[in-house]
Design a protein around this nucleic acid. Structure first.
Lengths: 217, 217
DNA sequence: GTCTATAAAAGGATAGAC
DNA sequence: GTCTATCCTTTTATAGAC
């Protein structure tokens, strides 16, 4: 092909696959689909990748390393308040749902539930993506400092934000109605309000002093 | 085949497909897989179903109509407290995760994120399954009566229980670690504690007097 | 209703020229 | 590195006997 930037082909393959996996899923995307979208031929793809699954690994790796540049920075630009940042990120997912008429799915979440093989390398990269996402939220929660009650399990809360997002996207997509996502986020907001409130005027409970952060009903 | 109960073949097909879709996903299950597990031949399946997708519809329909008998009753037998029932149901999913070494996925959730086609009939059945699940939780929340604060959006809260379950199962499966599910449920528990607490001693915003009444605060 | 056999297509992957 | 051509397997679905 003419005017080909060296090293560009591999990038185009990953980009094409990233889009197609998001749009159709991994199993329903054929190698031929990827070739077509990338504008290349079979030989080129198999020159860079041993097989289709290795393309998936490259895609997941691209998501993982690009989370700051492609997801967090665009959403957080100009927003400093850490709690605002959390709900701004969720609003970003909402915008994606609206733009795609609720066809959008979190690419990581969709792949996580589509891939059923034990498949350690793929699964580890999926997990790493989730971990990075939760890390970013956890940083926000740490930055919130004393606005959250002492003893708040910030790691668990960060993961809870993630499960809310994934669950909300799942329901909104299935019902083709963004209101399902909105209600999930609204419930999370209520929970945060409760936490922020009780940090201001702590409710004393028997279990709380003895067992900080681990109360279980 | 000998000793065949009339009308049994169709049921066996659906049962085999139900198991395989749950285990391997829809796309990775071939018609041949279903035939093998059901112990029948190609002609029988295509006698009852126009194609593979119609088997999926029958599976989703079976989940939908069987939710009480197969999911709710086994988990709720002997438990009357409506809030306990909610967390008992979540404990049931936890048990499934543990038994399968976190291979388990909610079959509806997995299919919801695997199926990317617009595909109205399939999607409507997925949505109907989610709706039935949330209905059951909503009934619990209604039964909780005044233990929840006045004005609680019980529908949204029921859906929030669902998103927590789905998100928790997703993370636990991806990390192959049930602790991710446990933390999600624990966060939901904290939220419920907050709600139950504020129903006992309603929080007044702005000029709130602390620890009114006789609660053990 | 169930069987066997097979059609027809699509899938992932490879070979070898350039 | 990229191309064209092709192999081989798997897949869904059908045909027609019993």
């Amino acid at each position: 092909m003419i005017n080909q930037v060296p090293g560009d082909t591999r990038r185009r393959i990953v980009e094409a696959a990233m889009h197609l996996f998001w749009e159709k899923g991994y199993g329903s995307t054929s190698v031929a689909d990827i070739l077509g979208r990338a504008g290349i031929n079979s030989g080129s793809l198999y020159h860079f990748f041993p097989g289709k699954q290795d393309v998936l690994l490259a895609v997941l790796e691209a998501y993982r390393t690009g989370i700051d540049e492609n997801l967090l920075e665009p959403n957080w630009r100009g927003i400093d308040d850490p709690i605002d940042r959390i709900f701004r990120l969720l609003a970003g997912y909402r915008a994606a749902l609206v733009q795609t008429e609720c066809t959008y799915g979190c690419p990581i979440g969709s792949l996580a539930l589509e891939i059923h093989e034990p498949d350690p390398p793929v699964r580890q990269l999926l997990a790493a993506n989730f971990t990075n996402w939760a890390n970013a939220i956890e940083d926000c929660l740490k930055a919130a400092g004393t606005r959250l009650p002492a003893g708040t399990d910030r790691r668990a809360l960060a993961e809870f934000v993630l499960t809310t997002m994934e669950g909300g996207v799942m329901l909104a997509g299935s019902h083709r109605d963004v209101a399902y996502f909105d209600r999930a986020v609204q419930q999370l907001r209520e929970y945060f309000n409760c936490l922020l409130q009780s940090a201001r005027s702590p409710v004393r409970r028997k279990s709380q002093r003895r067992n900080r952060g681990k109360s279980n009903a």
